[in-house]
Amino acid sequence: MTALLEVEDLRVAFTRRGEPDTVAVDGVSFDVKPGEIVGLVGESGCGKSVTSLAVMRLLPERGNRVTGSIRMDGEDLLALSDSAMRERRGRDLSMIFQDPLSSLNPVIPVGLQVTEVLTRHRGMKKHAARREAAELLDRVGIPDPTRRLDSYPHQMSGGMRQRALIAIALACTPRLLIADEPTTALDVTIQAQILDLLEQLVAETGTALVMITHDLGVVAGLCDRVNVLYAGRIVERADRHELFRAPRHPYTHGLLGSIPRLDGPPGEELAAIRGSVNDNLPWAAPEGGACAFTPRCPRALDVCGEVTPLAERAGTRLLRCHNPVPVAEGAA
């Protein structure tokens, strides 16, 4: 199957006058096939949100430099004019944000925010749009949808707001949906509801979903393929079963070891990753490259601090490491 979205060598640098660029995303490549759920996982500051904003072309116009290509149906989104992009946003690709309260307009009823999309992109008339909006709210599991159309965002709970946001994102049945930490602000029982809903909608509509999260648990239950980001680069990519059974990159391995497991024995010492992202080395430096993870890596060799590791393919897996975790140890 051909890919719906192909991101190739995406690089986002934030520029400031008189200062060196801050490279947030550093040569990220991935693709998404129709109906597939792809995860982008990483800790804060790894560039996962910037990647999604770059794909949606929602980064501010000034102060950054985006290079590489983002192709949807073979057409480079980065080359589109602003108005052409606006046409596609919402219709072909749409986004769900982390905090539903700050991404909904607080002074406009929720219903109007849903119908806005319908009239803008699908050219519906007011009454038809309202009917459709009620149906959408119903589909995402909001009880009493007709009455809820007139509610303001602050009158709804966090879970309901996130549902409303999903309804807006789905209004035009986009072929690609990007969800940026859609459940981080929610409680676990509500998170379970929302993840269930997303999974169901993807199965029903055949929408491709890019799931951005820091929670490996969310990824384990939902995604078909997982990309692990570290300091702006993909360090490992694999199918979810493969990734969790045998994590090869020391970072992925360490990340899995540092999560307390609900089904494991309590009280055991966690295998924490030492240091913090502040210790990172730059991937590329004038005097030669390095692996950014080296100072925190338990398997670091001399070469790790001298040569930038390349992303190498092994079967379905992509790995960027000089000294990966052996398969047997990773499986333990």
């Binding site: 009880p143 709970s157 966090g158 879970g159 309901m160 676990v188 029982t189 509500i190 998170q191 379970a192 509801q193 993840l195 269930d196 929670d215 490996l216 648990g217 969310v218 990824v219 384990a220 239950g221 979810r240 079963h241 969790f244 899995l256 999560i259 497991r261 609900l262 089904d263």
Partner: peptide, 24 residues
């Protein structure tokens, strides 16, 4: 609550049954 906590293990995730709570 226990069934809602995501486990970092795809096999366990696929096996287990979710008890979804309705409402808030």
């Amino acid at each position: 609550l226990l069934s809602a906590v995501p486990l970092p293990d795809p096999e366990a995730e696929d096996r287990r049954e979710r008890i979804l709570l309705a409402g808030d």
